[in-house]
């Protein structure tokens, strides 16, 4: 069985909110990415996304775009992501996922990408610009499944009921709900439209919900707890790295510790 599924089962039994964190391969540098992942795993993070940097990341906001650009400028290659996964996976218990744009997968060769990812200890792929309609001619989901990888689908508050139902048919593992908008002041709580949306998503899908809504504090974790099975911490980590180039490791560690309390 895939380690993502095992971890999801474990969370369910223990009735605990899971955590997924995100790093950009090669940001702030390759050694730094490695240390971050080891530290995250030690803290008991449940899933770790390794984002393979891409020059034109359509789905990402400024923070992740900048991290991708910095990483590419310092010479990170797609091969480095596979090498890093191979190096890290035997040392950690959190399942690793690749987050990549479809061009990275396509250029590498879809079938080969999935095969090599699996061989490097990757358990799931998040490819946000591969919608279901295009998969018909690309065969990406099939390549994942053939190689024992879970393809994670990403939806947002812009996804209407029709899209939710279309995604429901193919989604595996957990459904990733993300947004670049919708967060009001941390103290004011979640926008009622967002809670309504999360309720709707929960009623449509029978797989767990991973929610990434600019989670940057314990308060925000509490806000989504009711509606989410997994809290996704994305750009907040990158912001800390960005602002603390010297002691980011310690800073990220205490930030995550606080979130998980």
């Amino acid at each position: 069985m895939n380690n993502i599924s095992l971890r999801l089962d474990k969370l369910k039994i223990e009735k605990k909110l899971g955590f997924m964190t995100h790093v950009v391969v090669g940001y702030p540098d390759l050694a730094g990415t490695e240390k971050l992942v080891l530290m995250m795993d030690k803290l008991g993070i449940d899933f770790i996304e390794l984002q393979i940097p891409f020059s034109d990341p359509l789905a990402d906001g400024p923070t992740i775009m900048k991290a991708c650009e910095d990483s590419l400028r310092s010479g990170t290659k797609v091969k480095d992501a596979f090498d890093l996964a191979r190096k890290l996976s035997p040392k950690i218990s959190a399942p690793l996922l690749f987050m990549a744009y479809y061009n990275t997968v396509f250029k590498y060769g879809t079938e080969k990408f999935c095969k090599d990812a699996k061989a490097s200890g990757i358990y799931g792929l998040i490819v946000p610009d591969m919608p279901i309609e295009e998969n018909q001619s690309e065969g990406f989901f099939e390549a994942c499944e053939k190689n024992g990888l879970i393809h994670i689908h990403v939806i947002s508050p812009a996804s209407n009921k029709k899209r939710l139902l279309i995604n429901k048919k193919v989604a595996r593992g957990f459904i990733y709900v993300t947004a670049r908008q919708g967060i009001t002041d941390a103290k004011k709580g979640l926008d009622p439209k967002i809670t309504q949306y999360l309720k709707e998503v929960k009623s449509v899908f029978d797989i767990p919900l991973a929610v990434g809504f600019g989670i940057s504090s314990r308060e925000r974790v509490n806000m989504i707890k009711e509606y989410a099975d997994i809290a996704v911490v994305g750009s907040a980590v990158l912001d800390i790295i960005n602002e603390n180039p010297k002691d980011y490791l310690k800073k990220v560690e205490s930030f995550l510790e606080e979130l998980k309390k």
Binding site: P128, D129, P131, A158
Partner: peptide, 17 residues
Amino acid sequence: HFGKFGGRFVPEMLIPA
């Protein structure tokens, strides 16, 4: 699609629009 080219390779959040 124009043969193998074209398409709509976008994140879900853009599809309804």
